[in-house]
Design a binder for these strands. Structure first.
Lengths: 209, 209
DNA sequence: TAGATTGTTAATCGATTAACAATC
DNA sequence: TAGATTGTTAATCGATTAACAATC
């Protein structure tokens, strides 16, 4: 019941992975699982699993393990996925387009409410069922629709400015795909997805092979 | 000079970020920088920077700091970026298409040599200048062109099979975009880019705002 | 009841930070 | 020389793992 301990970022980053594995178990109609069994599937220690899950109050049962369905639902709730976050995507280039068309976000409770660009040639055209809106109308749009999350898929030169615009208008979180850091911002949480960084890290790891 | 200490994954993951900041400094014709100045820009401790950079033998100079150009080049070499890794992209869906058209990879030394799909309707058509090849021809292609890195942008049901195919044919590293883990594989390094996970983590972080 | 498995405390391990002698 | 700043050792902090009493 104590939600008071601070949960480390390390733990939070692992939650989506637990959620994924539990989702699979659930689909396969598996009703219960022990930390030991799950640890073997996920290739982590059982001890870590018990520690992690205990950050959110005992969802297991001694001598039995964890109920898959109820643990799945708990994690969903802890992550705040049941709220149906509204998102906007800024940037209708190649990546932006791919993100608009990526249906899986919606399946996980993220609802795309608007797509924006500053290119006159693109504004008014469609990506799937989404019309591309003028970036100038973003403040009004946010005031009206109150999206939580902004997804930034613009060139790095524009990213800071867009991030500021979003946060100043009340967007709470950003996913940043541009090749720059947006960590200087107050009042907004930022998750960076730097695909280039992953490639570089991989490059290092395959050096001696 | 001692390359013998083991470098932790934590440090390796930070290298691309150093590389990015040094690249910016370099573009602005800044010649030298101290760990203190860099720490302020990057919002980390100077101590961490010195520790990190020292994993690879002293590239700094006491009383002076670090030479931007030479440190930039060192990190480039440490990451193995100067080798010009050949890549293949598997999956010509929305994400695959965006990745093919994403020119920045090439700028950072990753050379796209082939794009593959299993959809007859797509095979033979072009994305930019790249023709989509039949997935069945992948083993021959790898034997001939020897790509290092495979980028997996297929639905999760196919990902395991594709990963196995790539690794069995000698590809050394994988970047996995599909919503599943590919960590069970031997003989191949895997970097996961789970965009959904970032959204979920963000969802948690904005809960109380 | 006996067996299983959690929740949780204690021990270990590793990463980060602080401190400072070495030296440019 | 005096000042600056590294490389590196030592101290601290936090995360992971081990252990086990509690209990279903």
């Amino acid at each position: 019941m104590s939600d008071s301990k601070k949960i480390s970022y390390e733990v939070i980053k692992r939650l989506p992975r637990y959620y994924r594995y539990l989702g699979d178990l659930r689909k396969n109609n598996i009703v219960r699982i022990s930390s030991k069994e799950l640890s073997e599937k996920m290739n982590v220690t059982a001890s870590q699993i018990r520690q992690d899950l205990n950050c959110f109050g005992g969802s297991g049962q001694k001598g039995y393990g964890y109920n898959v369905e109820s643990l799945y639902k708990s994690i969903c709730e802890i992550l705040g996925l049941e709220r149906g976050h509204k998102t906007v995507i800024i940037g209708a280039g190649n990546l932006g387009k791919a993100l608009v068309l990526y249906k899986s976000f919606e399946r996980r409770g993220f609802i795309l409410t608007g797509v924006f660009d500053n290119d006159e040639a693109k504004i008014g055209t469609f990506i799937g069922e989404h019309v591309i809106l003028n970036i100038n109308t973003l403040p009004d749009f946010i005031a009206k629709h109150k999206p939580d999350i902004g997804i930034i898929a613009v060139p790095k030169e524009k990213a800071g400015e867009i991030a500021l615009l979003l946060s100043q208008n009340g967007v709470k979180g950003l996913v940043n795909f541009s090749y720059t850091d947006l960590s200087m911002l107050k009042d907004v949480e930022v998750e960076n997805v730097h695909i280039s960084d992953s490639l570089m890290t991989l490059s290092y790891r395959i050096k001696d092979k």
